[in-house]
Design a protein around this nucleic acid. Structure first.
Lengths: 333, 333
DNA sequence: TTGTAGGCGTTATCAT
DNA sequence: ATGATAACGCCTACAA
């Protein structure tokens, strides 16, 4: 026999309306009745059905999280932080890996919409801006994480990519490097980091060599491929700014294969400070983002939107920090 | 104005029952009507509400996935494979990291129950067996992944841990090692791998030294801690069987700190063949599990249970495979 | 082949 | 302070 609000009402000798009221802390009920109802709910181990509740318009207590790939350590960590905070608020999170493919994004958004999730977190590099607009039109609460879409008014939580790029370059430049290659993703974050690359180079009065600039996906294999290219460059760079740790790992592999020693002959700096950067040899110098804090903040913004329907969209910008380890060194001579 | 089945019915000039029938491919409707309805759904961009549908007993099209920690690369990969296949079946997956804490398990299960998910995948090392029993009593479809609970009849997908342990030990032993340490998790899988350790040692006629056996959690730091202990052992082992890659990474770190060269002075073998094992120096020899295939199979079993209410619970056992890379070598002299 | 109506478990609006 | 009752959007006998 199924356990519904009716069962509780009957057992407690009240009406379902009363039970509903104590569940939701709405209306006025005597303390005595409230306790009685609470007790029976406890005794019966009753939990209201989110589904039924959702049908009346109260939200599903479920949010969707779109990331390029959960299997990518950076996004896995983001996922974990979002999951933790959502859970503490009694929200479930549906994980959706898009592979940065417009088609997958579309399919997942459609699924989420049918499931009537209460809100969506878009983490990094969403391809399909019309889709975002659609969501906006449908009043679906959205928060962008590690991504911005300048042309739209959406709440977002990001780090300062330009600053991150500057910090990385500053580190390399102050170490005496002048021939610096860069391998970056071709998305907004990547472009900002690239912009910082150019800017800092200019500041140090070194001309930028376009053939030092490589664009690719955030994978070890791509990093290795383009890293090798760079290492074969007629005027081989003495340092490489890999715009995320996965790419940096690829570069390290390429260097090893080419018998080039890090950091003696080549300095490498990554970005993200994922767990991967703590296990390489040598340990990877990188730029860190406060992932847990960012995940938490993202959920918080989303909840404000969900619960209060915030009209004012805030953009939160965190500062990245340099984490010096062993993969970068003074340029000799 | 909200878009419901009524809107579609009206626009198409039929009743909601008809629309419902074409949506669910049930009952008999003329091809003409079907097309008409399909067209209007298309035109209106209508998608039936899973919530409402769920309330009538048709399931939420949502499953829960409990893992110790999504941020752990092994489980991140598992998550990805499960997500992919579920998604292709139009199911959403709610991610739940338990940290192997009974309290978190309980909280998540309660959340999932309230959300009325259609089924649950329990990946690895569930602490709370009464909770499982509760779920079973409630007829919640469950499949165990990378875990078994011998005392209960539950569908499961695992690799043969004993065989995996044997393969790893066989490799080390055939390389001439006789002083072999082991660091393992204290769960069912770990115990089986440990059992294989003892067995193989015995087979090779070497007495097992209990002080060579360490138990810990699946983390780099624990691996480093116990690895260091082993390396300080008066009769230092020449090889270490780390029962998963994370632990192996810790051991490698410990060895490096102690100035012990791998594989020259110490052979290390891991388990899981995660992405981490492809970026270490030297590359990690490990034992692989067919993660994607296992994830897929798990979802498949769960769906069978959800859709057909399978009475017969199958246990699928996959074979692990040795992946020889660079962290193991012949024992000199 | 298609339509009518009752039910799924809650919430919320009125009465009482 | 409490209770009866109409939604919510869909499914499914049962009728027509």
């Amino acid at each position: 026999m199924k356990l519904t609000i009716y069962t509780v009402a009957q057992e407690a000798g009240v009406s379902i309306a009363t039970v509903s009221k104590v569940i939701n802390n709405t209306g006025r009920i005597s303390e005595k009745t409230r306790q009685k109802v609470l007790k029976t709910m406890e005794r019966l181990n009753y939990h209201p059905s989110t589904v039924a509740s959702a049908l009346t318009g109260k939200g599903t207590k479920n949010i969707g999280l779109l990331v390029p790939d959960v299997a990518n350590p950076f996004f896995a960590e983001i996922t974990r932080s979002i999951e933790d905070y959502s859970n503490s608020l009694d929200y479930g999170v549906m994980i959706c890996s898009t592979d940065n493919k417009s088609e997958r994004e579309r399919k997942y958004v459609s699924l989420l919409l049918r499931q009537k999730i209460d809100g969506i977190i878009l983490a990094s590099n969403f391809q399909n801006e019309e889709l975002i607009q659609e969501l906006l039109d449908k009043k679906v609460p959205i928060v962008l994480l590690a991504q911005e879409v300048p042309s739209m008014s959406i709440a977002s939580v990001t780090i300062d990519d330009f600053k991150g790029g500057s910090i990385a370059m500053q580190h390399l430049l102050s170490l005496g490097h002048r021939n610096i290659g860069i391998i970056t993703e071709n998305n907004r974050s990547g472009k900002k980091r690239l912009h910082a690359y150019r800017q800092m180079l200019e500041e140090y009065g070194v001309e930028v060599d376009e053939s030092y600039i490589m664009k690719c996906e955030a994978s070890i294999s791509d990093g290795a491929y383009y890293g090798e290219k760079l290492l074969r460059h007629p005027s081989r760079p003495t340092a490489i700014f890999a715009c995320n740790d996965m790419i940096a790992l690829g570069v390290m592999t390429a260097a090893r294969n080419a018998g080039i020693s890090i950091p003696d002959e080549l300095s490498v700096i990554g970005f993200d400070n994922t767990i991967m950067s703590t296990v390489t040899v040598p340990l990877l110098t990188t730029v860190s983002q406060p992932i847990r804090e960012m995940g938490r903040k993202t959920v918080q913004l989303l909840m404000e939107d969900i619960e209060k329907g915030d009209a004012f969209k805030q953009s939160i910008l965190y500062s990245p920090e340099l984490v010096v380890r062993q993969s970068t060194a003074l340029q000799k001579q």
